[in-house]
Lab assay of single mutants.
Amino acid sequence: MDVFMKGLSKAKEGVVAAAEKTKQGVAEAAGKTKEGVLYVGSKTKEGVVHGVATVAEKTKEQVTNVGGAVVTGVTAVAQKTVEGAGSIAAATGFVKKDQLGKNEEGAPQEGILEDMPVDPDNEAYEMPSEEGYQDYEPEA
């Protein structure tokens, strides 16, 4: 019985440690998101679009440190934060509304985080759909 109880105690310690790591990862992701939003706020009209992409990228980098179902929630929060940063930029006159959601080359930025393969159960990952990809044929 002692062996059984000791095993359960060790398992509990492992769960607590994993929860603490997840909590730490979420806190880091939130900190990076805040950094990115402050970065966007300090940019001029020309830099705002690039700044919004930076927020998304920093958040995406930190999301990889967070495991399990938390990833889905962090990704949703990050996307809403990026959308909010863009709205703030438009409201303050840093950028025109028609410039939001495009990178410096004018290509749409939507789907940055949505296409990231995420499995809350950590069982399997699927690649994003290939609808947006084109076949590449090298020139002879």
Rank of each mutant, 00 (worst) to 15 (best):
E139C: 11
A85C: 05
D135A: 02
E123P: 02
E20R: 03
G36S: 14
T22D: 05
V49R: 15
T81F: 01
G132V: 01
E83L: 14
A78V: 06
A89R: 10
T81H: 02
I88E: 04
E57C: 09
M5Y: 02
P108A: 12
I112Q: 15
D2F: 13
V95N: 12
V40L: 13
A89I: 15
V48R: 02
V52A: 13
V3R: 15
P117D: 10
G73A: 05
E28D: 11
D115V: 12
E57M: 13
L113V: 03
E137L: 08
G7E: 05
A18C: 08
E20W: 10
E13M: 00
A27I: 12
K96E: 11
A89F: 06
D98M: 10
V48W: 06
K6N: 07
A124M: 04
V70T: 05
G106T: 09
L100S: 11
Q134T: 13
P117W: 04
V49W: 09
Q79K: 09
Y136C: 08
S9Q: 08
S9F: 14
V3N: 09
A56K: 10
Q109L: 11
E20Q: 08
N122K: 05
E28R: 12
A53V: 14
A91V: 04
E123T: 11
E139T: 03
P117Y: 07
K58T: 10
G36N: 15
K21E: 02
A29D: 00
E61C: 10
Y125E: 12
D98I: 15
A17H: 01
V70N: 02
V55H: 02
E137I: 09
G93E: 06
A78K: 09
D121S: 12
V15S: 00
I88S: 05
T72A: 07
F94P: 06
A17Y: 05
D115A: 09
S9T: 04
P120M: 10
G106S: 10
A56L: 02
G73D: 05
D2L: 09
D98W: 04
P138S: 02
I88M: 09
E105V: 12
V74L: 11
G132D: 12
T54I: 15
V16R: 11
P128I: 14
A78H: 09
D119A: 03
D121G: 10
G14K: 06
E110R: 04
T81Q: 03
L113M: 05
E130Y: 13
E114S: 14
E57A: 07
Y133H: 02
K43M: 02
K32D: 00
K6G: 01
Q134W: 11
E46S: 06
Y133T: 11
Y39G: 01
D135H: 13
A124E: 12
N103M: 11
G36I: 15
M5P: 00
I88R: 02
V77S: 02
G41L: 07
P120I: 13
V3K: 04
N103T: 13
Q99F: 08
Q109A: 12
G73L: 15
A107H: 09
G14W: 05
V40T: 02
Q109E: 10
K80C: 08
V26G: 00
E13A: 11
E139N: 08
V15H: 00
D2C: 10
I112E: 10
E61G: 02
D2V: 03
E137V: 12
L113D: 12
S87L: 15
T22L: 09
A76M: 01
E130T: 07
E20P: 00
K10A: 10
K32R: 06
T33S: 06
D121V: 14
T22P: 03
M127F: 12
G93V: 07
V66C: 06
I88P: 02
T81K: 05
F94K: 00
